[in-house]
Amino acid sequence: MYIWDMNNINKRFEQIEHLSDIGIKIYGNSLKQLFESAAEGMFSIMCDLKKINPAVKRNVSIEEHGRMGLEELLVLWLENLLYKFEVDNMLFSRFKIKKFLTEDSRNIIEADIFGEKVDFGKHEIVVAVKAPTYHMLEVRKDRNSRGWAGKVIFDV
């Protein structure tokens, strides 16, 4: 579990039990922040975030036309990050979503993500996430904080 204070949110994410795989609960003041929390949560499964120096910036740009729920968009965002992880051979620890738009027929996420190349001397990779799943997937308004909360189970 990885907990800290940031922007009035006590917890950004926490790992939850799943017999075969690993899940996270995520929290955010806004949808933007919720998605950033999910990204942090996903990379925390693979590696201690404190060990990942956010020195190098990469850009993620998602534009999807057609109807899409917030949950599907969350999966797509995480898949895009996994793609960057594998293809650029980089771990990321900081995520800044600059544009977040969800309309009936247009969904846009533009983000700067920060991390560094995988270095076995420094990074212990516990397990590589294969993919976010739709199983028990959830994005909802949080009753308590008036912010957002969600849940994602990953295949590892």
Partner: peptide, 9 residues
């Protein structure tokens, strides 16, 4: 058999 996602493992 064990708990998976969607299909059981």
């Amino acid at each position: 058999i064990h708990y998976g996602y969607g299909f059981p493992i």
